Simulated assay, not measured.
Amino acid sequence: MGLRTDITNWMPLSVSEINKIFSVIPIRWCIAGGWALDLHLRKQTREHSDIDVIITREEQLIAYQYLNRHWMLYRAENGKLSLWEDGEYLSSTNDVWVSKSDGAPWAFQLMIIDTEGDCWTYKRDKSIRRPLADIILQTADGIPYLRPEIQLLHKAGGSKVREKDYKDFQTMLPSLLQQEKAWLKASLNRQFPEGHDWVKFL
């Protein structure tokens, strides 16, 4: 079982390189993370040390068959990076790191999301959900990316909110629509009944 520990060895692909790879794979996918927010704002607001791509759990093996021809895929789980074997269905892994070879820098990350019927479900609180068709927006040139309020929920919902996540939130706030703010606020109140720092801004 190939294990890797070089977690800072990143040379992320560009958004357009990702689009080129994924647009030929017959699955639902989109750009996530800080890049999703920048695509929404139509400008780069900060440096990005990596690039995240969302796929659904039910379509993971299709993604694997296409990517495996040119890339090595590693499951990130419990702080370990181990090779994702051909045909292996990842039932609980949410994060896969991808590189050209076992020593090459990391090029992108796959984030595996869960669905129920036609809905995406939030991994930290399954009662928070949206229709799958609703969670992806597109840039003017057709690059799919995760809706800002859903990306911000992922950033807000972790056990520790990083400084860059808070900055991303502040950068996005002025351009969030009323219904996006309302959804994010309701979702944060549901996940954190005891309160969350971001709610007062919404």
Score class of each variant (00 low, 15 high):
Arg57Cys: 04
Thr121His: 05
Val53Asp: 01
Thr5Gln: 14
Asp168Glu: 08
Thr45Ala: 05
Ala133Phe: 02
Ser187Arg: 02
Ser16Lys: 13
Ile128Gln: 12
His48Asn: 10
Met172Asn: 05
Ser159Val: 10
Asp197Phe: 15
Ala156Tyr: 02
His154Pro: 00
Tyr66Ala: 12
Ser14Thr: 15
Met1His: 15
Ser127Pro: 00
Ala76Lys: 09
Ala182Ile: 03
Lys164Arg: 13
Gln179Ser: 15
Leu132Asp: 01
Arg28Glu: 13
Gly2Thr: 07
Ala107Ile: 02
Phe108Gly: 04
Gln65Trp: 15
Ser159Trp: 10
Lys185Pro: 00
Ser159Arg: 13
Lys155Cys: 06
His48Pro: 09
Asp165Met: 08
Leu153Ile: 01
Ser101Ile: 07
Ile27Phe: 06
Lys126Phe: 03
Arg147Tyr: 06
Ser159Ala: 14
Lys20Ile: 11
Pro12Met: 07
Arg124Glu: 04
Arg69Tyr: 05
Ile7Met: 05
Ile135Tyr: 06
Leu132Gln: 13
Phe201Lys: 04
Leu61Ile: 07
Lys185Arg: 10
Asp6Trp: 14
Thr139Trp: 00
Ile27Met: 05
Gln138Val: 10
Phe201Asn: 02
Leu137Met: 07
Arg129Met: 13
Leu153Arg: 03
Met1Leu: 15
Trp120Tyr: 12
Asp197Ser: 14
Asp141Glu: 15
Tyr89Asn: 02
Val98Ser: 04
Lys80Glu: 13
Ser14Met: 10
Glu194Ser: 14
His48Gly: 06
Glu59Ala: 14
Gly33Cys: 07
Ile112Arg: 08
Leu39Pro: 01
Gln178Asp: 09
Gly158His: 05
Cys119Phe: 03
Thr8Lys: 09
Arg190Ala: 06
Val98Tyr: 02
Trp84Ile: 00
Asp114His: 10
Asp118Asn: 13
Asn19His: 15
Lys126Asp: 09
Ser159Ile: 13
Lys43Tyr: 12
Arg42Asn: 14
Pro148Trp: 06
Leu188Lys: 03
Gly142Ala: 09
Gly34Phe: 04
Gln44Gly: 05
Val53Lys: 01
Gln179Thr: 10
Ile27Gln: 00
Gly103Ala: 05
Gly34Lys: 04
Gln44Asp: 12
Trp35Glu: 11
Asp102Arg: 07
Leu41Phe: 13
Pro12Phe: 06
Ile112Lys: 03
Glu194Leu: 10
Lys20Trp: 10
Gly158Tyr: 04
Trp97Arg: 08
Ala133His: 04
Lys100Tyr: 13
Phe108Asn: 00
Phe201Ser: 05
His40Ser: 06
